[in-house]
């Protein structure tokens, strides 16, 4: 028995969410009276693999097949399912991010396992296995019962947190069987975002809506984001108008995010927008309309013109940073 965690890497490094997954799995493994095995695919050095022990992984499997350099859903699913079988995993945990969403359903079918996608916490019961997940676009939680002996979960980011529980993991090379037919797609061109904080991984997000009036007015937002190390986001009308790229769109049909702090600037707060950001720990709304529905969701509100409020806020943050 084991809880298997797929830990994705970015250019050989793990991220906060990888450690959150291990922390979650460790807590779950305690309840199930078993241990945590992490699976890494790709080139990650031993020190980085060993660091997964810090959060409770007792074994790390490293699959370094050269063909697994970019995500091929079918091949990755095969590798992860083979690792689950080898370790006799009863639970397989993924992040609820692009990769997890792409691969977990395929792994579930291979293992004849029930899937809970967008899990929001530990199971309320492990026999029967009932786990809370997000549903209806963040407006509610659903408790899902999984009837199968093996369960596949994708954990919603920032819904559990990181807990240290140092262990000395054994590192094991893992060589799964792969067929040429597992590689039916090939990456022709990669356009990586470098030097920018990823929206789905950001602790602070500065987001703006139609209230900014024009794409030329984004400079004060960029300055605020740079000052506090935030990622930029926007509302749907802004991306539909082409003011900002659609990757920045947060909301029901865009990205669903859960940062610690979310600035909603010139965003009225339509239900579809709130659906994408309601899991944020704190929302700060800046809007000149005091009746904007965003103030119903926000923890802190400022009524005012963004073009004046933003520079003042950036200055206040700079002052804060200088004195701390």
């Amino acid at each position: 028995m084991a809880v298997l965690v797929y830990t994705e890497n970015w250019d050989g490094k793990f991220k906060k969410l990888s450690y959150e997954l291990i922390s979650y799995a460790t807590k779950l493994a305690e309840t199930l009276n078993t241990s945590v095995v992490a699976l890494s695919i790709g080139n990650v050095d031993e020190a980085e693999l060993r660091a997964l022990g810090q959060y409770g992984a007792s074994k790390v499997l490293a699959a370094k097949d050269g063909r697994l350099g970019s995500l091929e859903n079918k091949a990755f699913a095969s590798v992860i399912a083979q690792a689950a079988e080898k370790e006799q995993a009863t639970v397989v945990v993924f992040a609820h991010n692009f990769t997890g969403k792409a691969v977990a359903p395929r792994v579930a079918v291979r293992l004849k396992a029930g899937l809970a996608a967008g899990v929001a916490g530990l199971p309320q019961s492990t026999d029967p296995f009932i786990v809370p997940k997000k549903a209806f676009n963040g407006s509610s939680f659903a408790n899902l019962k999984i009837n199968t002996p093996i369960r596949v979960l994708t954990l919603f980011q920032n819904s559990f947190g990181i807990l240290e529980k140092p262990a000395e993991p054994t590192i094991e090379s893992f060589e799964p069987t792969l067929n040429d037919s597992d590689f039916a797609t090939s990456v022709k061109d990669v356009n990586k975002v470098t030097g920018k904080i990823l929206l789905t991984d950001a602790e602070i997000v500065v987001s703006a809506g139609r209230g900014m009036k024009s794409p030329e007015n984004w400079a004060p937002l960029e300055q605020l984001a740079e000052t506090i190390g935030a990622a930029l986001a926007c509302s749907r009308p802004v991306s539909d108008e082409g003011w900002r790229p659609h990757e920045e769109h947060v909301g029901q049909t865009g990205k669903v995010i859960a940062p610690n702090l979310y600035f909603a600037v010139g965003i009225s707060g339509a239900i579809q927008h709130v659906a994408g950001v309601s899991s944020s720990k704190f929302i700060v709304a800046i809007n000149k309309d005091k009746d904007a529905p965003i103030f119903d969701t926000a923890a802190y509100g400022v009524i005012g013109d963004a073009m004046q409020v933003l520079p003042a806020l950036t200055a206040a943050f700079k002052e804060f940073k200088a004195s701390n």
């Binding site: 549903a135 509610s140 899902l144 309601s278 119903d296 923890a299 009524i303």
Partner: peptide, 22 residues
């Protein structure tokens, strides 16, 4: 029949927004 929904919960109500002078 692999999974089934047992029940649903609505998130706790948010505290009132604290206003800060612009």
């Amino acid at each position: 029949n692999q999974t089934q929904y047992v029940n649903y919960e609505l998130p706790p109500a948010k505290a009132k927004c604290k206003m800060v002078d612009a």
